[in-house]
Amino acid sequence: MSPYLTVAGAVLAGGFLFLAAMVAGRLFAPKAPTTAKLKTYECGVDPVGQGWAQTNVRYFLFAFLYLIFAVDAVFLFPWATVIRSADLGMASLAEMGIFIGVLLVGLAHAARRGLLRWI
């Protein structure tokens, strides 16, 4: 059997299960929508203001430091698994050097703006 047939079978079965669950819900579940039930939030308190909210632009500094100290780890950990390999080792070393260099420029910028000072 062609592997595509297997995939098509899985897709069809998935669609059937989805439809069966939705139709069963329609057939069995009581429905009594009220104004209060159709409210978006579930905290019990009436929503205030609009859906759009503004965040102070100065919070970008936290995003900036998070990028420097946390997000780079996502790339550093997988790098540790290939650094000893013969074909990728030297190339990845150079590439990660560039990457960390860019991050260090950012860190220097943060330090120059006094972001690393304990307040």
Binding site: R26, L27, F28, A29, P30, K31, A32, P33, T34, T35, L38
Partner: peptide, 10 residues
Amino acid sequence: LPMPRVGPIT
């Protein structure tokens, strides 16, 4: 609001 109803099978 639609009328409250139990499911047809129920």
